[in-house]
Structures are given as structure tokens and as C-alpha cells.
């Protein structure tokens, strides 16, 4: 313990909450409050209503939600496949090749997402690949952006995996493919679901590249939220944002449940 006097401790906590509450807790509270309001001219919003949520229930907003969910699902599965494969392959490599693959797969984190969007737009609007204006290009962009995180989390999990498991399995006569399938993947399962959850959440909230690419019939939730706020419908935007947060949290929660079940199996 750093501060030993009671007064000092209380002072530290006061400083903490004075900084923490308005900066981190308030934003979410405010969005939730606004999503039920029709007017905010005083200290607190007024005229509570469910109208914004009813609007989400039908039409464009619902479509945006399913679009986002589908995009995130496809992107995270693809990212896990590519990133996980790359991490497994890279684990056995040493030296220069390993460094190159590491650098390659974390590069999408460093490149601005807008530029990733622009580059896909430039590359896939011309032959031999014509994807512009389809849902595929959005999913592709999301996949590129979240693969880096899948690669890093699977790689970190592999590094933590005790080689004794693999070696014991090999000494018992198990071929590498069998070891991978029966020992390593089951042991990696918690990390894999966590990585999938992370990818899903990131994809659900992706805005930058999507703004560059989305076709009119494949408009994910963040774009819809931007559209609402841009035309001044802040309260409707807030309701959509709540939907986005809740659905992201639900997916993370389910993934977390899978994780704990796997660890207790």
C-alpha cells in the first residue's frame, strides 16, 4: 500500500473518481439516457420515449444490425482462420522468415484503416478483381483489419502453451497433425474464442474503412449511426449506439461463457 493515512487514501480515491466518472462512466450513461429522450435542453434529457427503439425494430436500422452481425461473423471467422494458421506456421520458424511474417501480420494495425479502405477500393474496382459495390469488399476490409489481432492473440497463446504437452504427445507416438488436432487446438480453445470475440467486437465497431467502401445495400450499424447524427437525429443515433453496444457485449459475453466452459471441461 502506497498511501498509509486514511485521509490520504480518501484523497486519492476522490481524485480517481473525479477523473474517472466524467471521462469513462459518463459517456455511456449519457448515450443510454439520450436514447430514451426526445429533447435535451436542460441538465438532463426530457420527454422519455421508446420511439427510437421502435424505429430500430423495423426497416433500415434492423437491416443495418443484421448487416453488421453478418459482416462481423464472416470477418472474424476468416481472420481467425488466416491469422491462426499464420501464427501456427510462424511458431515453428526462426530468424528472418519469422520476423518478416510477424511484421507482415501486424502491419494492418499500423496502417490507417481509411487507407486500407482506400487501397481496397483502388485495387478491387479494376480487373482482375471486381468487388466494388458488393458486400464482399466490406467483409474483406474488416477481415484485413482484424486479422492482425487474431494473429497476435493466437501467437501469444501459442507462446504461453507449455511445450511439454506437445512433447509428451509426440513421445506417445502422436503425429504432428494429430497433436495439433487433439492436444494443441483444444488447449488453445479459450484463447481462440477470446480472439474471435475481440475480432467480432472490432468488426462491429469498424467505421473508417467501411465509410470508404460500403455499398447502399450493405450499410453496417456504425455507418447508420453516423448517418443519423449527421442529419441531426442525435437521439436516434444514441438508440442505435446502444443497440451496437448491447449486441457487442452479448457476443463477448457468450464468447466468455464458451471460454469458461472450455477451461472447466
Amino acid at each position: 500500500m502506497l498511501v498509509h493515512s486514511r485521509a490520504g487514501r480518501i484523497a486519492a480515491w476522490v481524485v480517481f473518481f473525479v477523473l474517472f466518472l466524467p471521462l469513462f462512466a459518463l459517456p455511456f450513461l449519457v448515450i443510454v439516457m439520450a436514447s430514451f429522450a426526445t429533447n435535451w435542453s436542460g441538465a438532463f434529457p426530457s420527454h422519455p420515449t421508446f420511439a427510437h427503439y421502435r424505429a430500430v425494430g423495423g426497416g433500415d436500422s434492423l437491416h443495418a444490425l443484421t448487416t453488421s452481425l453478418l459482416t462481423a461473423l464472416c470477418a472474424s471467422v476468416l481472420a481467425l482462420l488466416v491469422g491462426g494458421w499464420a501464427a501456427l506456421a510462424a511458431e515453428k520458424l526462426r530468424g528472418g522468415t519469422r520476423k518478416v511474417i510477424d511484421a507482415l501480420f501486424v502491419l494492418p494495425v499500423a496502417v490507417p484503416s481509411v487507407v486500407v479502405g482506400l487501397s481496397l477500393l483502388v485495387a478491387f474496382s479494376q480487373p482482375p478483381f471486381l468487388l466494388n459495390g458488393t458486400a464482399k469488399i466490406v467483409i474483406l476490409a474488416h477481415t484485413v483489419l482484424v486479422t492482425a489481432f487474431a494473429y497476435q492473440s493466437v501467437g501469444a497463446a501459442l507462446a504461453r502453451l507449455d511445450p511439454a504437452y506437445e512433447q509428451s504427445a509426440a513421445s506417445l507416438g502422436a503425429r504432428p497433425a494429430y497433436v495439433l488436432w487433439r492436444v494443441r487446438l483444444p488447449l488453445l480453445l479459450p484463447s481462440l474464442t477470446a480472439a474471435a470475440g475481440l475480432c467480432f467486437a472490432l468488426s462491429m465497431g469498424e467505421l473508417s474503412a467501411t465509410m470508404m467502401l460500403y455499398p447502399p445495400d450493405w450499410m453496417p450499424l456504425p455507418v447508420q449511426i453516423y448517418g443519423a447524427t449527421n442529419r441531426g437525429s442525435l437521439f436516434e443515433g444514441a438508440a442505435l449506439a446502444v443497440v451496437l453496444m448491447v449486441s457487442t457485449l452479448l457476443v463477448l459475453l457468450v464468447m466468455g461463457r464458451v471460454r469458461t466452459r472450455a477451461t472447466y471441461r
Binding site: 459518463l26 459517456p27 455511456f28 449519457v30 448515450i31 475481440l198 467486437a201 472490432l202 462491429m204 465497431g205 469498424e206 467505421l207 456504425p222 449511426i225 453516423y226 447524427t229 442525435l234 443515433g237 444514441a238 449506439a241 451496437l244 453496444m245 457487442t248 457485449l249 463477448l252
Partner: peptide, 10 residues
């Protein structure tokens, strides 16, 4: 896990 623009919205 949440997108950044939510902060601006808030």
C-alpha cells in the same frame, strides 16, 4: 471493445 466514435457521440 467499443468503437471510438461512441465517445464523440457521448
Amino acid at each position: 471493445a467499443f468503437p471510438s466514435f461512441l465517445i464523440t457521440l457521448a
